[in-house]
Amino acid sequence: MKQRFLFLGNQCVAVTLAFVTSPAYSVTLETVLQTTLERNPAIQQAKSGLQQAAGQRLVFRSVAWPDVELGVPAGVQGGHRAGESGTKGFAVGRGVLTQTLFNAGLPASLRRGDVEVLIAQQQLNVAVVDQLHAARLAFYSALYNRSLEFIRREQQRTLQENVTTQRTRLEAGLADKSALASATVQTSELDSQIESAHRAYLDAQLQLALAMAIDPAKPSLPEAEGELQSAPIRVDLDSETAGALQRRADVKLARLFVRAANEDHRIIAANYYPAVTGSINGEYVPVTGIHRQGSTSRTQDFIGSEIRERAAYTWRVIDNGKVGGAVLRARSAREI
């Protein structure tokens, strides 16, 4: 609660203003940083992105892994052929193993998976740095504006005493009205400065609550505990600039994005070259006399268990610019 003095003609009117603030609880800078690190939504989202990147890394590395398919077709076989009798059940075990033997994009795909995880880790670092910095600034801003509001109120109290003194002198005939008016105006000028400092303090409290993942609608908001102190430091611009280029998390993240774009370009350009895959097909038939689908004679039926190996060689010679266009698009994205 505070008083505002207005000078109207020969009268000085005191107007009382009441400010209603939400109850608050004190927090130290260490508590603010720890809570922000544990509960801040942006940091939590970056942690989830790290888990997603680990899964995406498996996708990139799956190109080098074999692909295995297993199946057990079963059913009932009917009909009559020479030398056969009646209806009987059957089951056939099938398995297919496919392995990439040569792919020009395989090394780039493996590296791209590793870079994906590095990008997610660096994005987490960027989120941590940004959010902790925002929390620290909100904490310092709260301390500064609270101190500023206190100083302005002390100045106003002193000026109010001066107004009282000038009024007494005016009543005693020792001063004129201009002195009282000047003192009153000086006192009134501080009202806007006090209100501005108070609003800035409330805004700092709000930013502090958001950084700590505290619902602003709650009746209590965090209040910075401590006093703001400053100390002179010397900064070498050249050395700090060089160090920032090496240490800053956002600069490291930008370098990783460039690496990822280069690997994407290599993966796409690998389609210019041939690819070789090998496969092993196996069939296990526990009984005899089982017909293959669409067979018309015994020579086409399952004779027994068998394993077949083969290798396939694929080289896209004409693609009507599909690969070239994708390479140009990836190159332009990298240069941007």
Rank of each mutant, 00 (worst) to 15 (best):
A42P: 00
A64D: 05
S62Q: 00
R57F: 03
V32G: 03
L58G: 13
S22E: 10
E38I: 03
Q56V: 09
V27A: 07
Q51N: 14
L29E: 11
L37R: 14
A46S: 09
K47V: 05
G49L: 05
L37V: 03
F60H: 10
R39G: 04
A42D: 12
V32E: 02
I43L: 07
A42H: 03
A54T: 01
T35L: 01
P41D: 05
A53L: 04
S22I: 03
V59R: 10
L37N: 09
G55W: 10
Q56K: 14
V63D: 11
V59Y: 06
Q56I: 08
T28Q: 08
L58Q: 11
S48V: 11
V59G: 07
A24G: 12
I43F: 06
T36C: 15
Q44K: 14
Q45K: 13
A64Q: 03
E30P: 02
Q44D: 04
T35I: 06
L50C: 05
A54N: 08
Q52M: 12
R57K: 12
V63R: 15
L37K: 09
Q51P: 01
S26N: 14
S26K: 10
T21M: 05
E30G: 12
G49C: 00
R57N: 11
T21P: 05
A46V: 03
V59M: 08
L29T: 01
L58R: 14
T31L: 09
T21K: 06
A53I: 02
K47C: 04
L50A: 05
Q45M: 15
R61H: 12
S62A: 13
Y25C: 06
S26H: 12
E38G: 00
L33I: 15
E38F: 01
A64H: 00
Q34K: 10
S26P: 05
T21H: 08
Q34Y: 02
R57W: 02
R39K: 15
E38L: 00
V27P: 05
P23T: 07
A53S: 04
S62D: 07
A64P: 02
T31E: 15
A24E: 10
Q34A: 13
T35F: 01
V63L: 14
G49R: 08
S22M: 12
Q56L: 13
V32L: 05
S26L: 15
G49N: 14
Q52S: 13
Q56P: 01
K47F: 07
R39C: 06
S48M: 13
Q51M: 13
Q44E: 09
Y25E: 09
G55V: 07
S26G: 12
R57L: 07
R61N: 10
R39H: 14
E30A: 11
N40P: 00
G55I: 06
L29Q: 10
A64T: 04
T28E: 08
P23C: 09
E30D: 11
L33F: 08
N40H: 00
N40T: 02
Y25Q: 01
T35N: 04
Q52I: 11
V27F: 00
A46L: 02
F60C: 05
A54I: 09
V32C: 15
Y25A: 03
G55N: 09
L50V: 03
T21E: 14
A42T: 11
T28A: 07
T28I: 07
L29N: 02
L50T: 06
A24T: 11
K47H: 04
I43Q: 08
V59L: 10
T28H: 07
S22P: 11
Q44N: 15
V27L: 11
A53C: 03
L37C: 05
K47Q: 15
R61Y: 03
